[in-house]
Design a protein around this nucleic acid. Structure first.
Lengths: 250, 250
DNA sequence: GGTTGCATGTCGCAC
DNA sequence: GTGCGACGTGCAACC
């Protein structure tokens, strides 16, 4: 049996089920009224309410309220989750070190529990990432500027990585920072840092921020610092496929 | 009944249960073997495998693999989740606009489903945030430097917000950037941006980055740019309470 | 609704 | 392990 469900388990049953799931590497889901404590990088408390608790075999622990994308409390993988009874309640405790932190959920009433012996060998395949945008620019530097030549990709400098180091038609060095999304002030900062560094040891250098768009404030910051913005909203690693996908997407 | 569980529901039953849950504002959890497609800011595909699916009444939709803190696919709240059958399979579709995107989970086999009529009025109370660190500094500017006076908190400037604008004992203006965690190059960037701006119109200005710690690279970047680092690892809004919490912790 | 910056960010990759 | 930057970042505050 892949999944086993128990309705309104009593504390002893729930602890037994949880311990067995943790031992066997199964995923555990609990619907319950509970209180939650977090102690670690910050500390916090969540009073009684109905939530879904999820424990994964890698030590991940999630507390989900009825609304919101993010779990209200959580523990990333790498640690351990344990179950015990305390004052008649079931307590699920997730902890890890580095940093040292803990999430403790006191279950006041369990409405349901599911043990799920999940096997999942698939990995998520994604396209449209910044890495692909880099590939596109490397293959088509002319979309940024006529005559631009890419000299180096992911060049390491004293203060960090430059996305592209290039030269324009006149041979002037160009530092290029690429963003997949609308450019922010932090992205301007990054470019400025790289350019400033280069200017310490070299006479002339241009800096270009490449992104689909940028706010006026970012554009002004660039302008005021003699940096440039290039809007690059469309890029295709496989133009035909991407277009077709759009046409059929309703 | 707060939670209702069905074991290995057939497609029609699952769709009915899902539709009822969405209609009634209940949370839905499904343990299933499924495939997932995402189309939106990027696009991606996840082949068949066992996952936990969670749909919330606010339109949140989560796909959790057996490992990892983050859902492999998701939809933040604000959109809608719907259920239908397609080629004999149940398909859960979550979509929203701004940005326009969709997650579609094709359920190849459902092992269990839980409908959860959750009520949760509690809100999470947290302490130890950067906001509290700001309060502490504002009340105790001397911990940064003897004689420092805070002039303004959250001062807006042309390029962004300065955490603190202050003056030292000699009256020299000081721009202060505060980080709750170990300082990174991006945090150095931020401070540098504010200081550079101020230098355009003023003669002398100091810049201080306040954080519990900083990497050597960050410290060097600060030094090279005549900026300063102040380590501030401990801060207490209520020293007694925090100390006691530590002593009794675990 | 757009912009800005925090976050218990998490995650992956390089050193 | 630490450092650094991307992320379908999400999220709230402020305008």
């Amino acid at each position: 049996m892949v999944a086993e469900q128990l309705d309104a388990p009593d504390p002893e049953t729930l602890v037994g089920e949880a311990k067995a799931a943790f031992r066997d590497g199964a995923m555990l889901t609990v619907q319950a009224r509970c209180e939650v404590e977090y102690e670690g990088r910050t500390s916090g408390h969540l009073g009684p309410g109905d939530r879904i608790l999820v424990a994964k075999p890698d030590g991940t622990f999630l507390v989900h309220q009825p609304t919101g994308h993010k779990p209200v409390n959580w523990m990333p993988g790498g640690g351990t989750v344990s179950a015990r009874t305390s004052d008649g309640d079931v307590v699920l405790l997730a902890r890890r070190t580095n940093p040292t932190e803990r999430v403790e959920a006191r279950i006041l009433e369990a409405y349901g529990v599911t043990r799920f012996d999940a096997t999942d060998g698939a990995t998520y395949e994604e396209s449209g990432t910044e890495a692909e945008m880099h590939e596109y620019i490397e293959a088509n530097p002319g979309v940024l500027e006529e005559g631009l030549r890419i000299v180096e990709h992911e060049r390491e400098s004293k203060y960090g990585f430059i996305d592209f180091f290039a030269r324009d038609e006149a041979g002037t060095p160009v530092v290029v920072e690429v963003k997949r999304i609308q450019a922010t002030l932090n992205h301007f900062d990054q470019l400025q840092r790289y350019v400033s560094l280069y200017e310490e040891t070299n006479d002339e250098v241009r800096g270009i921020l490449v992104a689909p768009s940028a706010s006026e404030r970012v554009k002004r910051a660039l302008r005021d610092n003699d940096l440039e913005f290039v809007g690059l909203s469309e890029f295709e690693t496989d133009a035909k496929g991407a277009t077709e996908a759009k046409l059929t997407d309703f």
